[in-house]
Design a protein around this nucleic acid. Sequence first.
DNA 1: CGCTATTTTGAGCCGCGTCAATACGGGTGG
DNA 2: CCACCCGTATTGACGCGGCTCAAAATAGCG
Lengths: 248, 248
Amino acid sequence: MSDLSERLQKHTIPLQHAKEKCVYCSLSHFCLSEGLAASEMDELDQIVEHAPTVAAGKHLFRAGDEFRALYAVRSGCYKSYTLSEDGEEHVIGFHLPGELAGLDAIYPGRHPSTAIALDTSSVCVLPYDQLAELAGRIPGLQHQVFKLLSKNLTQSHALAGDMTAEERLASFLVGLLRRNQQRGYSSTRFRLAMPRRDMGNYLRLATETVSRIFRRFQDDGLIRVDRREIEVLDAKRLAALAKSASGV
Amino acid sequence: MSDLSERLQKHTIPLQHAKEKCVYCSLSHFCLSEGLAASEMDELDQIVEHAPTVAAGKHLFRAGDEFRALYAVRSGCYKSYTLSEDGEEHVIGFHLPGELAGLDAIYPGRHPSTAIALDTSSVCVLPYDQLAELAGRIPGLQHQVFKLLSKNLTQSHALAGDMTAEERLASFLVGLLRRNQQRGYSSTRFRLAMPRRDMGNYLRLATETVSRIFRRFQDDGLIRVDRREIEVLDAKRLAALAKSASGV
DNA sequence: CGCTATTTTGAGCCGCGTCAATACGGGTGG
DNA sequence: CCACCCGTATTGACGCGGCTCAAAATAGCG
């Protein structure tokens, strides 16, 4: 079992980490508390545990762990992945601040996937039983949970199409760009939190292919690539390449 | 069908009403009403509208339609798909009796996909506002909606892996087999409701490839194929091929 | 029976994966 | 400050799985 789950069980998370409130959180506009009244956010605050910041490489939960809570990323970036029986990793998605992890665990009651921090990161812990009880009393919260689940559903369809490698990578970049903009970051520069391998695994491309497409994009004047630093030079053409869905 | 008749006689309930109740529905075990008490199912029944049976080719909803309700398939089979801007179809999934359609519309408040009957089919209409209100009062119902959303999430991840054509098709067949078994049908024979084209589109394979893999499976003694009639001869080896996830 | 949609089968080709080698960078210890 | 090491990223060569193009078989249907 993962560290955090243990601490959750034993209630050893220091209270001083639970000071911040949804009302004052800059992420509340696209997190679970979106559209809630201040008083409703207060109720939500009372069940939220603010886990301490952890270093990259720290597991949030592991496949097989009992499902107890959903996790809203507060800072950093997480990667979710499953392991096939032959030990191969399959990256399901990346979670930026304000996004939820662990949604796929509701159905089986046990986490089917593993989440690991790619950067120095922190999360808000949302104990499921309490969240469900609260959602029953606050229609807006219930709707928000439904919406976020539905949103993830659509997003996971986005990568399903049979796009070319270029379309895939362009979609991915456009998606990251959009999500960064939403969070108030630069719409032209950003830093990839994940190595090429994870990116490729997520997009079902070999890391070599990812590298090659990056170079092609750069040669075509679409972006400038320096390792994990990306600068978008021609957002229009990039978006045109990502004609299909906005990659998650 | 004879099952239902028996129950109808035992409970002496008027035919036209009784046959429309969740309590007597053979699908309730894996539909929305799973795990609900009889009284709770009654409440659910009061908001459910039973749409008449339609012929194959009839649309359930179209992309762009305002989101009003979720749909539980009662009989037949539906296909969900999106249209890319260049008019290409992208099959998202197939809905068998007891499964929900329209879940991806909750987030945007408008259907992103289109659903069409592949067979003579019928659905139960679940008006969203009323369903949400009811889910707020019935914890088990709310949890069930969460679960079904979560389940669909995991399922849409299943097809994401970079499997070979054989693995894809095997997964798909194994998944259909399992779903047919759950519904009390034969675990060795079944009829595909969809043409090769839809199957291939869903699995991201050319229809020609689907055809070729079918032949290969038959030559290897895994299955017997006659057009859309499938007989599974060696379920074990087929499942071994579908080592990864159980295709939706 | 013809007409049409679906399915099957064949031939050729291309995008992307695989294998292999090199370059780069960041950290560590001498 | 340099030498070394190791994980990440890049680049090249080559082969193959599955797509494309083309055409024939088969079934469903009026």
